[in-house]
């Protein structure tokens, strides 16, 4: 039998009451009279450590079991055939908490390393081309307004590059659709990028930096690799999931911390993509009977033009240049 506090649900008046069992019914008696109910029908709040527990009766009345009676109350309930729920049991022991922590860490790692990349790879071909086209048009339009200007290269030079690139691809089959765009960039270094819809954008400065057309073609082959593997869409899917998850986890604490960790985690994905695109370019060039050394020399020039910092850091979105060059050199042999 327990001494508990009873509240009738109509006023906040606190009344003392006795709680006991009468047959298979729980009985509460006090100055207010009697409340009873079968143990299995009653709403008994889950055990949450030292928090008071409540028994709610259908008429709105409820009684409160104070902290100091909790252990005895739980044992008493168990004796009458009412055990803790499975989650409540999990929450009680340190052993379970550590297991849960391990499962959390393991599943987050698995999701980050394998599940999310695999899911993005699976989903990418199912995104409607119209959506990708709209997205890419939007991006290119926004860039054209601010960072990019029409190309200053002579038309013949541009045509020559386009012609040689399609000649290089002529022997291959199963290539992704692409369109070449030349742009002059304001305030950013030599670069080239591919948009998910198949737009490959090359900066004038990159063409200028290249010694001959074969180096430009090597870069284009690398960008075609991004298109082949649908890296653009996959990156979009992965980074939105990562930033959403981190926002949920750390958003309450600081958006600064969430934003920084998003950047940190995404860079690993980008480095893997760059490596895949390099490998694709190498095999494409070799297949066409070209020497992939053009890609290596181009990478070296790009690095030199950016001030020589190899960017060997966690945050670098591209793998560090020496290791990429080593990879290309190794694949030539």
């Amino acid at each position: 039998m327990f001494q508990v506090h009873f509240f009738d649900g109509k006023t906040s008046k606190q009344q003392t009451a006795q709680l006991d069992m009468d047959g298979d019914e729980l009985r509460l008696t006090g100055a207010f009279g009697e409340r009873r109910g079968r143990l299995c029908d009653l709403d008994i709040s889950e055990a949450l450590d030292s928090a008071p527990r409540f028994i709610r009766f259908p008429d709105g009345g409820m009684c409160e079991i104070a902290s100091h009676d909790l252990a005895e109350f739980a044992a008493w309930l168990a004796r009458h055939g009412r055990q803790h729920g499975w989650v409540a049991q999990l929450q009680m022991r340190w052993r379970n908490a550590f297991a849960a922590l391990l499962v959390c860490v393991a599943s987050v790692f698995a999701a980050y390393l394998w599940i999310l990349p695999a899911a993005a790879e699976y989903l990418a071909p199912h995104i409607p081309p119209a959506a990708l086209q709209a997205l890419s048009d939007q991006v290119l339009e926004a860039l054209d307004g601010r960072l990019l200007a029409p190309s200053q290269l002579p038309a013949q030079r541009r045509e020559a590059i386009a012609r040689e690139f399609s000649a290089l691809l002529a022997t291959q089959s199963g290539l992704p659709a692409y369109r070449l765009h030349f742009r002059a960039a304001k305030g950013i270094g030599p670069n080239a990028f591919a948009l998910p819809s198949g737009e490959i954008v090359v900066f004038d400065s990159l063409v200028g930096l290249a010694g001959d057309t074969s180096e430009v073609l090597a870069v284009l082959a690398h960008e075609l690799g991004h298109l082949h593997y649908r890296h653009g869409v996959r990156h979009l899917i992965q980074s939105s999931v990562v930033s959403f998850a981190l926002g949920m986890y750390l958003g309450d604490i600081s958006s600064l911390a969430a934003g920084f960790s998003t950047l940190l985690l995404e860079s690993r994905y980008s480095r893997a993509f760059e490596h895949d695109a390099d490998a694709y370019a190498v095999s494409l060039l070799r297949h066409a009977g070209r020497d992939p050394v053009g890609l290596a020399s181009m990478l070296a020039k790009l690095q030199a033009s950016q001030g020589g910092d190899s960017g060997r850091s966690l945050l670098a979105s591209h793998p560090d240049t020496p290791s990429r060059i080593d990879f290309i050199e190794a694949s030539r042999r």
């Binding site: 908490a97 849960a100 922590l101 499962v103 959390c104 599943s107």
Partner: peptide
């Protein structure tokens, strides 16, 4: 303990 068990179940 409550937080980690529920976080784990949420993830799973």
């Amino acid at each position: 303990r409550i937080w980690i068990v529920n976080l784990c179940l949420s993830i799973l």
